[in-house]
Structure formats: structure tokens, C-alpha cells
Design a binder for these strands. Structure first.
Lengths: 186, 186
DNA sequence: TATTGTTATACTCTATAACTATA
DNA sequence: TATAGTTATAGAGTATAACAATA
């Protein structure tokens, strides 16, 4: 709600390194709990990930779509929209973009000619491979402050929280305006 | 970029309990690392927090502003905008809202009559107290799956990550469209 | 002339609804 | 008549730029 890459009054956490951060914590009562840190770090992680895939010419939303198509080739736009909880018209624009980049192919279904079956192109598969590399680098950079044992510990705790909160594995709510990755260090 | 409260292709994490979640994980390669979980849980936490303060008639951005004004009463809108990395005109609308609710007061500065000194009203202080209560309940609900020792462990690991990533304590990047809390269970 | 707060304008993004083609 | 995909329209939100008051 506030700016594109600046700190946010909501939680009050720091700006990502690529922005010009206020560097000094705001005076007064600053939130200190794990919930705040999770929101803060989570937003930071999402932003950094957006930067990385941005260098591949993709938005986080693009990545999600590519993954879903890869996992279930030939699926229709409708089913995609449903799984994502998105309005079908939204899918049109997203697929348009991916098709324009040569990563995805629309094929008229022979069984029901109203349907478009979605498939990755070879280029799409290559790109998805590059995304995996970016994701690994992202993970490593984010957890640079932790040793392997601590990383395992963190992962376990997070999985516990996610399970208790009934978060569906692999589905990320709200990426609102993250789609436009900041030009920061890309 | 996708929907208001539905799962997101970006990371692919689950929808919050108040939405109608796809409940089944998408087939194919789902991200499993700590970075993804942090983004997923972070977005979930931010959404739930927005719901809670929404019941108090506030957006997360409102809460951030109230905190900053409480921490440094009398500060100008300009300084607020700078600390938040927000354009000054944005502050106008936010303060308008808070003033309209009777939580904040604008006072012309005697020293420099161009400035508006911002102060909390008594009602504003009461509301901020209620926010603290909501934040505590939020924290507790979010970590319901962890025992006290695990919570302490998680907190320490998160602080380590935040420090290494140079996240400014108390400042949260990007709350994009979170300002409108879902009407879900409020 | 520079600065604070404000207002007006333009732009971006998304959802809703209307439309075409298939069934 | 119902459904898949598409296009057109409208609404919400934000930043940019112009403006008035004060310094």
C-alpha cells in the first residue's frame, strides 16, 4: 500500500538491501515477535525471489504457472484458474505473456475444441530449469547466516507451523504487486 | 497479481483458512525449501494480522503509522514519509483516515507554520493498546503448533536471518494490497 | 527561491461483465 | 442452454506533478 520497494508501516520491518533503507530502526515501540519477523522475512524473501526470476524475464506469477503446467501438462486454462483461485480472464493475460516468450504453447483440444491444452515448450523447460537454479541460490543467500544444522532446524519448525496453519504445500497466497520485480540489482 | 485471497502461482503456497483453499497440493514440482516456507508463512501471517486489525477498523499501514507517531510524537508528515520511504502525498490520505477516526491529531507547528505536528489522541492510544492485544493473540495463534522451547528456538533463528539480511528492526517492506483485510472471519 | 502539505492527473493492475465458439 | 476462452469496461490504488501557504 505504501511504496514499491520501501519499508512498510504495516509491520515496520526493514527495506531490502537493494533499496535505500532507513537503516535506523524507528523510535518507539517496534514489534519484536516471531510473527512479525516471519512477515518481514517472508516479504523480503518474496522480493528477492522476484528479483532473481526477474532476471530471467519472469514474474513470480509466471513461475507459478510454469510449475503447474509442468506438473500437469495439457491442463486447461479453466482448471488452472480454479486451482489458483484466480478469475479465468486473468489466466489469459498471463498465458499470453508466456506464449509470447515462447515458453508455453496453447493447443486446441481434439476432444473438446473449446479447450486449450497448455504445454511447456523446450524453451519453457529450459527456463524452468534456470528457475530451479535461481531458487537454490536464493535459498542459500537467504539462509547465509545459518549453519547446516540450524537450517535443518528452521525448516522443521517452519514445516510444523505451516502444517498447523493448514497451508497447502506449494501454494503461496497473495503476491499482490510483487509481479513487477524492482530493477534494483538485477 | 493473482487474486485477492487465493493461492498464488508465485510460490504456490496454500490459501489461508478463511478462504476456500484448493486443499490439495498441486501436482508436479512443488517448492519445498525454507525460503519458500518463509514467504508462504510470512504472507499468511501478514494476511491474518490484517484481518485482526481490520476488526479494529485499521489497515496494517494504519498500525504502522500509529506506532511511529506514538514513538515520536509531534513529528511532521514529511519526516514520516521519509522514514517510511513513501511519497508525502500518500501520508496525507493515510493521516486523513486516522484523523477522521479520531485517532490522530494534526497541529500546526508554532515554530514553522508549514508543518503539521502529529499526535495521538486518547482514543488513538487506546486503539494502539488494542492493537497490541491483537498482535499478541496473532502471535499465539500463528505459533500454536510449537511449544515454548520451539518458539524460542524459532525466534532466535529468525533474528539471526533478519540480522544477516540486514533487515531494519521494526520496518516491514511491501504490504502491497494487504490494506484491505478480507472480510473472512472478521 | 526552497519547503510543507495538499490537490489533481495519469498509470497500473485487477475483477466483472459482455461476447464468440463450441458443445 | 451451458461452458471455454477472449475482449471490453470499470474500479481500486498509487505515484507524479502542479499548487497554495509559509519560510
Amino acid at each position: 500500500m505504501i511504496s514499491s520497494r520501501q519499508p512498510d508501516p504495516t509491520t515496520g520491518s526493514p527495506a531490502p538491501p537493494h533499496a535505500a533503507p532507513p537503516s535506523a530502526p524507528p523510535p518507539g515501540p517496534t514489534p519484536r515477535g516471531a510473527a512479525f519477523l516471519l512477515a518481514q522475512i517472508g516479504a523480503h524473501a518474496a522480493g528477492r525471489f522476484a528479483e532473481r526470476v526477474g532476471e530471467l524475464g519472469l514474474t513470480p506469477a509466471d513461475v507459478g504457472l510454469l510449475r503447474m503446467i509442468a506438473g500437469q501438462p495439457g491442463r486447461s486454462q479453466r482448471s488452472l484458474a480454479q486451482d489458483l483461485g484466480v478469475v479465468p480472464s486473468r489466466i489469459v493475460a498471463l498465458i499470453d505473456g508466456l506464449e509470447g516468450k515462447g515458453l508455453v504453447e496453447r493447443r486446441r483440444s481434439a476432444e473438446d475444441r473449446r479447450n486449450h491444452e497448455l504445454h511447456l515448450t523446450d524453451e519453457g523447460r529450459r527456463t524452468l530449469g534456470a528457475v530451479s537454479g535461481a531458487a537454490a541460490a536464493h535459498e542459500d543467500a537467504l539462509l547465509a547466516g545459518l549453519d547446516p544444522a540450524q537450517r535443518a532446524q528452521l525448516l522443521e519448525l517452519l514445516e510444523r507451523v505451516a502444517a498447523e496453519q493448514e497451508l497447502t504445500p506449494g501454494v503461496h497466497p497473495g503476491y499482490r504487486t510483487l509481479n513487477k520485480p524492482p530493477r534494483g540489482r538485477g
